[in-house]
Amino acid sequence: MSMRFIPSAPYASEAPKPDIARGEIPALRDHMVAGTPPVPMADSLNTPTEGPHPLQSHLKNWDQTQYDMKLEHLRRLFGAHEPVRRVMELEACKESLPFYPEVLKRADTMSMSGAPGARLDIAQEILLSRDQVVDWEDIYEGNDTVPLDFHSDLERRMRL
Protein backbone atom coordinates (compact mmCIF):
# COMPACT_ATOMS: atom_id res chain seq x y z
CA MET A 1 0.00 0.00 0.00
CA SER A 2 1.44 3.30 -0.97
CA MET A 3 0.38 6.91 -1.03
CA ARG A 4 1.36 7.31 -4.68
CA PHE A 5 -0.83 9.74 -6.52
CA ILE A 6 1.09 9.67 -9.80
CA PRO A 7 1.28 6.39 -11.70
CA SER A 8 4.73 4.85 -11.45
CA ALA A 9 6.93 4.72 -14.52
CA PRO A 10 6.33 1.70 -16.74
CA TYR A 11 9.99 0.66 -16.54
CA ALA A 12 12.32 -0.54 -13.76
CA SER A 13 14.01 2.19 -11.79
CA GLU A 14 16.78 -0.03 -10.39
CA ALA A 15 18.74 -3.11 -11.37
CA PRO A 16 18.09 -6.41 -9.62
CA LYS A 17 20.33 -6.75 -6.54
CA PRO A 18 22.34 -9.92 -5.99
CA ASP A 19 21.12 -12.12 -3.16
CA ILE A 20 24.28 -12.57 -1.11
CA ALA A 21 22.63 -15.10 1.20
CA ARG A 22 22.18 -17.41 -1.76
CA GLY A 23 25.82 -17.13 -2.70
CA GLU A 24 25.39 -14.55 -5.44
CA ILE A 25 28.25 -12.11 -5.51
CA PRO A 26 27.84 -8.54 -6.74
CA ALA A 27 29.69 -8.70 -10.01
CA LEU A 28 29.07 -8.44 -13.69
CA ARG A 29 27.42 -11.47 -15.13
CA ASP A 30 29.89 -13.85 -16.73
CA HIS A 31 28.26 -14.51 -20.05
CA MET A 32 31.02 -16.90 -21.09
CA VAL A 33 30.19 -19.18 -18.17
CA ALA A 34 26.43 -18.69 -18.32
CA GLY A 35 26.41 -19.16 -22.04
CA THR A 36 23.99 -16.31 -22.61
CA PRO A 37 24.38 -13.34 -24.89
CA PRO A 38 25.04 -10.03 -23.13
CA VAL A 39 21.89 -8.11 -22.34
CA PRO A 40 22.08 -4.33 -22.64
CA MET A 41 21.27 -3.07 -19.16
CA ALA A 42 20.49 0.54 -20.04
CA ASP A 43 17.36 -0.32 -21.99
CA SER A 44 15.71 -2.04 -19.08
CA LEU A 45 16.67 0.78 -16.72
CA ASN A 46 15.96 3.83 -18.81
CA THR A 47 12.89 4.54 -20.86
CA PRO A 48 12.60 1.55 -23.15
CA THR A 49 13.38 2.66 -26.70
CA GLU A 50 10.73 0.42 -28.20
CA GLY A 51 8.20 0.99 -25.44
CA PRO A 52 5.07 3.09 -25.63
CA HIS A 53 4.91 6.80 -24.97
CA PRO A 54 5.40 7.55 -21.25
CA LEU A 55 2.17 9.55 -21.18
CA GLN A 56 0.19 6.55 -22.39
CA SER A 57 0.61 4.41 -19.30
CA HIS A 58 0.44 7.54 -17.17
CA LEU A 59 -3.05 8.38 -18.43
CA LYS A 60 -4.15 4.76 -18.46
CA ASN A 61 -3.26 4.23 -14.79
CA TRP A 62 -4.19 7.71 -13.59
CA ASP A 63 -7.69 7.03 -12.27
CA GLN A 64 -6.71 3.73 -10.67
CA THR A 65 -3.74 5.33 -8.89
CA GLN A 66 -5.92 8.13 -7.56
CA TYR A 67 -8.52 5.64 -6.39
CA ASP A 68 -5.90 3.44 -4.70
CA MET A 69 -4.53 6.42 -2.83
CA LYS A 70 -8.01 7.39 -1.71
CA LEU A 71 -8.59 3.89 -0.37
CA GLU A 72 -5.24 3.98 1.43
CA HIS A 73 -6.22 7.30 3.02
CA LEU A 74 -9.48 5.75 4.19
CA ARG A 75 -7.64 2.72 5.57
CA ARG A 76 -5.32 4.89 7.63
CA LEU A 77 -8.15 7.12 8.86
CA PHE A 78 -10.91 4.64 9.62
CA GLY A 79 -9.31 1.21 9.45
CA ALA A 80 -9.27 -1.59 6.91
CA HIS A 81 -13.05 -2.05 6.92
CA GLU A 82 -13.69 1.23 5.13
CA PRO A 83 -11.84 0.51 1.85
CA VAL A 84 -13.11 -3.08 1.98
CA ARG A 85 -16.69 -1.88 2.27
CA ARG A 86 -16.29 0.62 -0.55
CA VAL A 87 -14.68 -1.85 -2.91
CA MET A 88 -17.39 -4.39 -2.08
CA GLU A 89 -20.08 -1.82 -2.80
CA LEU A 90 -18.47 -1.06 -6.11
CA GLU A 91 -18.15 -4.74 -6.97
CA ALA A 92 -21.78 -5.36 -6.02
CA CYS A 93 -22.74 -2.48 -8.26
CA LYS A 94 -20.75 -3.92 -11.14
CA GLU A 95 -22.33 -7.35 -10.62
CA SER A 96 -25.87 -6.03 -10.66
CA LEU A 97 -27.79 -5.13 -13.78
CA PRO A 98 -26.88 -1.79 -15.30
CA PHE A 99 -29.27 0.78 -13.98
CA TYR A 100 -29.76 4.10 -15.63
CA PRO A 101 -32.66 6.46 -14.95
CA GLU A 102 -35.04 6.78 -17.87
CA VAL A 103 -34.93 10.56 -17.74
CA LEU A 104 -31.20 10.58 -18.34
CA LYS A 105 -31.24 8.10 -21.19
CA ARG A 106 -30.64 9.37 -24.64
CA ALA A 107 -31.38 6.90 -27.38
CA ASP A 108 -28.88 8.33 -29.82
CA THR A 109 -25.87 7.77 -27.61
CA MET A 110 -26.79 4.51 -25.93
CA SER A 111 -23.90 2.18 -25.40
CA MET A 112 -23.79 -1.51 -24.53
CA SER A 113 -24.06 -0.90 -20.79
CA GLY A 114 -27.36 0.93 -21.21
CA ALA A 115 -25.83 4.24 -20.20
CA PRO A 116 -25.37 7.10 -22.64
CA GLY A 117 -22.06 7.05 -24.43
CA ALA A 118 -19.11 5.37 -22.83
CA ARG A 119 -20.11 6.50 -19.38
CA LEU A 120 -20.25 4.28 -16.39
CA ASP A 121 -23.38 3.21 -14.64
CA ILE A 122 -24.73 6.17 -12.64
CA ALA A 123 -24.58 4.15 -9.43
CA GLN A 124 -20.94 3.33 -10.07
CA GLU A 125 -20.26 6.96 -10.86
CA ILE A 126 -21.73 8.02 -7.52
CA LEU A 127 -19.60 5.45 -5.68
CA LEU A 128 -16.50 6.69 -7.51
CA SER A 129 -17.67 10.31 -6.93
CA ARG A 130 -17.49 10.98 -10.64
CA ASP A 131 -21.15 11.88 -11.08
CA GLN A 132 -20.44 15.61 -10.85
CA VAL A 133 -17.49 15.55 -13.23
CA VAL A 134 -17.27 15.66 -17.00
CA ASP A 135 -14.06 14.67 -18.77
CA TRP A 136 -12.76 14.16 -22.31
CA GLU A 137 -13.72 10.49 -22.27
CA ASP A 138 -17.36 11.48 -21.79
CA ILE A 139 -17.27 13.57 -24.96
CA TYR A 140 -14.75 11.77 -27.13
CA GLU A 141 -15.62 8.14 -26.73
CA GLY A 142 -12.71 6.79 -28.72
CA ASN A 143 -14.86 5.25 -31.45
CA ASP A 144 -13.38 7.47 -34.10
CA THR A 145 -10.41 5.22 -34.86
CA VAL A 146 -12.30 2.84 -37.11
CA PRO A 147 -9.76 1.39 -39.55
CA LEU A 148 -10.59 2.45 -43.07
CA ASP A 149 -10.01 0.24 -46.05
CA PHE A 150 -8.05 1.54 -49.00
CA HIS A 151 -11.03 2.63 -51.09
CA SER A 152 -12.90 4.52 -48.38
CA ASP A 153 -9.66 6.17 -47.30
CA LEU A 154 -9.05 7.36 -50.84
CA GLU A 155 -12.65 8.48 -51.19
CA ARG A 156 -12.36 10.48 -48.00
CA ARG A 157 -9.09 12.03 -49.11
CA MET A 158 -10.38 12.92 -52.56
CA ARG A 159 -13.66 14.15 -51.07
CA LEU A 160 -15.75 11.95 -53.31
Binding site: T49, E50, P52, H53, L55, Q56, L59, K60, D135, W136, E137, Y140, G142, T145
Partner: peptide, 14 residues
Protein backbone atom coordinates in the same frame (compact mmCIF):
# COMPACT_ATOMS: atom_id res chain seq x y z
CA UNK B 1 -7.67 8.31 -24.19
CA UNK B 2 -8.37 11.89 -23.28
CA UNK B 3 -8.08 13.09 -26.84
CA UNK B 4 -4.56 11.72 -27.24
CA UNK B 5 -3.77 9.03 -29.77
CA UNK B 6 -0.56 7.08 -29.38
CA UNK B 7 -1.18 4.93 -32.46
CA UNK B 8 1.67 6.30 -34.52
CA UNK B 9 4.16 6.73 -31.69
CA UNK B 10 6.13 3.55 -32.41
CA UNK B 11 6.08 4.17 -36.15
CA UNK B 12 7.30 7.76 -35.75
CA UNK B 13 10.04 6.61 -33.43
CA UNK B 14 11.17 4.03 -35.96
Amino acid sequence: MGGFSFDNYQRNKF
